[in-house]
Write a protein that binds this DNA or RNA. Structure first.
Lengths: 204, 204
DNA sequence: CGGATATGCTTTACCAGTAAAACACCTGTT
DNA sequence: AACAGGTGTTTTACTGGTAAAGCATATCCG
């Protein structure tokens, strides 16, 4: 990750990951009917930090660590259906941007839509073009710019993969009931809205 | 990201990113005193997908897209204090694992703790050793294994950076009030607990 | 004991991303 | 018209990750 784009590259929390050995069925109270049946790894990491630095307020880790860890697990899961379609996630992001906007996009627009660097978009476009999933067209007015669009094959690929992706995501979220999902979406939306609303807010 | 570790590499949601041009102060209802004052990019992306695929249930994107996007923004922010200390996030993760466990760890334990591949740990250890932040010691019983520990300098570095990290995180979360933060942490904890509790749940 | 197999770690070959420079083209100014 | 400077895209050099192969060592079992 650079200053230029906003992509998560690591799972880190605040260095906050513990992959405690899962010994399924051993050691835990067999979960009650409802409630917090399982313990997550982040809780363990935070506990460790608190033991070593009892004076520090570790509350932010409980959120940021979990967000990072969730993102990691989701992405791992989502990779599967994509790989089957022969796509990496960045490639799918690019195709998806074209599909959902429903129009041609220039490389720089694609970079903005996918939060990637221009150079990365260039590379991906090269491959996707070779595979016949996108096409490029020059701009007659301004010969610097290119216009990229999905081919029929590219469009079909996206439309084929998308429902699968969503099914995976739904399955991944099924640990939360409908109400919990709604609350979570709302809270994240509020947080994200404020983060994005003040572009400088994070750079301090 | 591979099957081997669980690190988020992209921001993707379901290819769900829109970097709508921020035209601050234009177009939006000037936010009411409280509530969802800002709109986030994920909402826009989901709207685009719904317009193109009205039949698809896009609800999962609202959560997963936001989790990914938040992770991206947080990590971007957290990179700053680390870079000042001359560390990358994976390096800090490794040092942090040693610090918070408070004991020597083997390379494979470090790989598990930081969700990285063994090869990546080897590389990082090489650099951190050269910089004098960690030390290695062979195991007399089993000469295959190494034991890694923080040097005084490494420990001091972690302890110096950690409060800064936490301050950044606290600032980043300040868009949410205390209650919201608590709820968010709880919801994420529940989701994450279930995701991690059933190792196969995500692979389907 | 001694070979087969497993384990811990490192090496190798490679790939995708980045930052910065390079390139090509446009636009405003004089 | 000519040039300075800006913008859109690609290229270059490099970095850090991965998968898979490669050692060295331990362990199992006849």
């Amino acid at each position: 990750m650079t200053a230029r784009n906003g992509r998560p590259a690591r799972t880190g929390a605040v260095g906050a990951e513990a992959a405690r050995e899962r010994t399924p069925g051993a050691g835990g109270v067999p979960g009650a009917a409802s409630g917090t049946a399982h313990d997550d790894t982040v809780a363990g990491v935070v506990r460790q930090w608190r033991a070593v630095h009892p004076d520090l307020d570790t509350a932010p880790m409980e959120i940021i660590g979990r967000i990072n860890r969730c993102a990691a697990l989701f992405q791992q899961a989502e990779d599967a259906p994509l790989r089957r379609a022969g796509l990496s996630r960045p490639e799918f992001d690019l195709l998806g941007a074209l599909r959902r906007t429903g129009r041609e996009l220039t490389p720089s627009e694609l970079a903005r839509e996918t939060f990637s660097s221009g150079a990365a978009v260039t590379k991906r476009l090269k491959q996707l073009t070779e595979r016949g999933l996108v096409e490029r067209r020059g701009d007659p007015r301004d010969r610097r710019v290119a216009h990229v669009r999905l081919t029929d094959a590219g469009r079909a690929l996206v439309d084929g993969v998308l429902p699968e992706q969503l099914a995976y995501e739904r399955a991944a979220l099924s640990g939360l009931d409908g109400e919990g999902q709604g609350e979570l979406a709302a809270l994240l939306g509020e947080l994200l809205g404020r983060l994005e609303g003040r572009p400088g807010a994070l750079r301090i």
